[in-house]
Computed example of a mutant assay.
Amino acid sequence: MKLAKNIKLSAIKVLQNEAEAIQGLIHQLDSQFEEVVHLILNSSGRVVVTGIGKSALIAGKIVATFNSTGTPALFLHAADAIHGDLGMIKPEDVVICLSKSGNTPEIKVLAPLLKRLGSKLVALVSQRDSYLAQHADYVLFAGFKAEACPNNLAPTTSTAVHMAMGDALAVCLLEARGFSAEDFARYHPGGSLGKQLYLTVSDLVTGNQRPSVHLEADLKEVILEISSKRLGATVVLDPSDQVVGIITDGDLRRMLGKYSDLEKVKAKDIMTLNPKTIAVSDYAIRALNQMKLFNITQLVALEEGNYKGLVHIHDLMKEGIV
């Protein structure tokens, strides 16, 4: 039990350390950050992000975030750069170099070579007086007190603050470009995330049955329609085929305790008026949010006021939206 307590305390200490360091970045932001954002926005080239060791891993993540949010980016490992891969960099590119110390041998070799190519060099460092910071065109300072590692050696807090700074850059660029959810969807067409962003109600109801009865339909017709269409409900239409109500399995169960003469029961007697609707052009994720909001399992899909079908919670589950 004592060991478990120590583990939890160690975890808390790490999280507090990194959280405080990231919070500290707020006070370190200066005009250089804004200048870098404008530099990238106005560049005709790409953003090349480089580093070595753990910094290289963070650089790769920043590149992935840039690419997915509308900023074309490439990853370049600093060690590979000085062994032939510098050829991928063009003069119009903006190079962001990540380094905790800013003084590693590879970085000292790489920095002047980048400047010679004509690319603008941005240093993301944790030491202002480092070699990299002194030779860069712009400096993004990400200082912190100590690594979360008890020996102050393993890159922990340093990688956290560098990643956070990369996220801040990506989001600022995203907002400056007016990058929308629709834009995001174009870069994320796969998986449940992609479906949340591009799948519409129309995509869901197209393959569904279209259960419906009219106001004067008797109970047998209502039950057969719900049962045959297998969506747990049917809409009720008026003489002009406009939706006026809905009857669900739950409505049928509640009816049994209310009416003694079931042969006289009509659809209009047991329907729920003004059912919740959604446009077929709306995204499927909005359908899910509406179902959660009203604690229901189906919505009536409309196109310019006309009934097109029912979208059921099971449709959303099948597509992996839920």
Rank of each mutant, 00 (worst) to 15 (best):
S130E: 14
P275C: 01
G60C: 07
S101F: 12
L204V: 05
D80E: 15
V109W: 14
L39S: 09
D269R: 04
L197D: 05
S180N: 03
Q127L: 15
H214S: 03
G309F: 02
L310R: 00
T206F: 02
P112L: 14
L288I: 07
P105E: 13
A181M: 10
L110C: 10
L153N: 05
E303D: 04
N295S: 05
F179A: 04
L273A: 12
L132T: 14
N6G: 11
R254L: 06
G24A: 12
A148G: 05
E225L: 05
G51F: 12
G70D: 14
A81Y: 10
K61G: 03
L224A: 02
S101G: 11
L29C: 12
N17T: 15
E304H: 04
A160P: 02
D249W: 02
L199H: 06
T156D: 06
Q28V: 14
R230M: 08
K61N: 08
R177P: 07
D249G: 01
Q28A: 11
V48R: 07
K2V: 10
M291Y: 06
F144C: 05
Y187M: 10
E34W: 13
F144D: 08
P239F: 06
G166P: 07
D137I: 15
S158T: 09
K13N: 13
E216H: 04
K145H: 09
V122M: 13
A176T: 02
S158N: 07
R210Y: 00
S227A: 01
N42G: 13
D282G: 06
V171P: 04
T272K: 09
A64I: 13
D241R: 01
T206E: 01
G207I: 04
G257S: 12
E34N: 09
L288H: 00
E304S: 03
N306Q: 05
K108D: 14
G178H: 02
G232Y: 01
N306G: 03
L204G: 02
L117N: 12
S212G: 02
A19R: 15
E263H: 15
D241Q: 01
N295I: 10
E34Q: 12
I313L: 07
E92K: 07
G45S: 09
S192F: 03
N17E: 14
A170K: 02
L256C: 00
M165H: 00
Q28M: 15
D129W: 14
R286C: 09
G207N: 01
K90H: 04
G320Y: 09
F179K: 03
V125R: 13
V122W: 13
S202G: 04
F33D: 14
L29E: 15
D30W: 12
V243P: 01
Y138Q: 07
L74D: 10
S212R: 00
